[in-house]
């Protein structure tokens, strides 16, 4: 694979399903995930998230278009050499022990016994299943199974992690632990691509989001680029005989009943101008900030798409 080539590459992907392939799940979807990125894949139930992920993994075959992992088509097993994958829901073999399951998955990923022996206890500890290596999986709760699922996806320390419905089945504590694990993976430069309904999770973890609606990509953007125009920082001030600082005047404050109002989008600028007003002797009457969530953006976008 060439350096800096996208780890996931999806181009004009169309997927039809059903007995006679009459239902279209994906309508020409195109996106890419670059090395080192954390990308959230969001959309309503039935929007096509899982279908797109399953096509990338080679579980579902494209009708037209193509998907590539590490530059290889999903049908080529080399495409999955450095991938960790967590399905939406999985119930692991009830008659196996947690250690045996991780040995199975690690071995299939090419790890040797010595590496597995040292890695498994640490990994179980990391996902909150320390000391459970010898327990049969039929004794595991749904949340424990999901934690084990996360462990199996990380067993071979893959470069790319793909999670379908990341925090499905986890309690709040589990989500918190998972967030820490993901942040640690992110800090080590791992590429993470996940679908989730938890938009706050996406907002806090991701560099970029891809929004899919009714089988079509309706938005791809960096989270910062998406959120910044939605934020609003307001400063109401009086001059009180002082001269308006140039930096403040450049932002064209509105004047009404002797009160000037500044509407700003960027937090840095807001902080800078607030300092300038104080230094110049102007009276700051009121400050307020309105930050909008990804959830609000998503809801608006999807409703707009539905109305169109």
């Amino acid at each position: 694979m060439a350096q800096n080539q996208p780890l996931i590459e999806v181009r004009d992907l169309v997927v039809d399903y059903g007995r006679k392939k009459k239902t279209r799940a994906l309508h020409g979807v195109t996106f890419a995930v670059e090395p080192g990125e954390t990308v959230g894949f969001i959309g309503a139930n039935g929007a096509g998230k899982s279908t797109a992920i399953k096509t990338v993994m080679g579980f579902v075959f494209p009708t037209t278009g193509e998907a590539k992992l590490f530059g290889y088509p999903p049908s080529d097993s080399r495409s999955r050499l450095r991938v960790g994958y967590l399905p939406e829901v999985a119930l692991y073999y009830p008659f196996m022990k947690a250690r045996e399951l991780l040995e199975l998955y690690g071995g299939l990923s090419g790890m040797n016994r010595a590496d597995l022996k040292s890695r498994i206890p640490n990994l179980l500890e990391r996902v909150g299943l320390g000391g459970k290596g010898e327990s049969l999986l039929r004794q595991f709760s749904k949340g424990m199974q999901q934690r084990l699922g996360i462990a199996q996806s990380m067993i071979a320390d893959p470069d790319l992690l793909i999670f379908d419905e990341l925090s499905s089945g986890l309690d709040p504590l589990g989500r918190h632990d998972l967030r820490d694990v993901l942040l640690e993976l992110k800090s080590r430069g791992r590429t993470i691509f996940f679908s989730s309904h938890e938009l706050s999770e996406v907002e806090s973890l991701c560099d970029r989001v891809i929004i899919i609606h009714k089988g079509r990509i309706v938005k791809q953007a960096r989270v910062a680029d998406l959120m910044e125009p939605l934020n609003q920082y307001v400063i109401d001030f009086r001059l009180n005989g002082s001269a308006m600082p140039d930096a403040v005047a450049a932002e064209n404050p509105q004047l009404e009943n002797g009160i000037h109002t500044l509407n700003l989008r960027e937090l840095d600028l807001y902080t800078k101008l607030l300092g300038a007003l104080s230094d110049s002797g102007c009276e700051v009457i009121r400050t307020s900030s309105k930050t909008r969530s990804l959830e609000a953006y998503y809801t608006e976008l999807v409703r707009g798409e539905d109305a169109a």
Binding site: S77, Y85, P87, E88, L91, Y105, S109
Partner: peptide, 14 residues
């Protein structure tokens, strides 16, 4: 049924 087919076939095996 258990969906373990996905975690198995996500490995580099044919």
């Amino acid at each position: 049924e258990m969906r373990t087919i996905y975690t198995l076939m996500a490995r580099p095996i044919s």
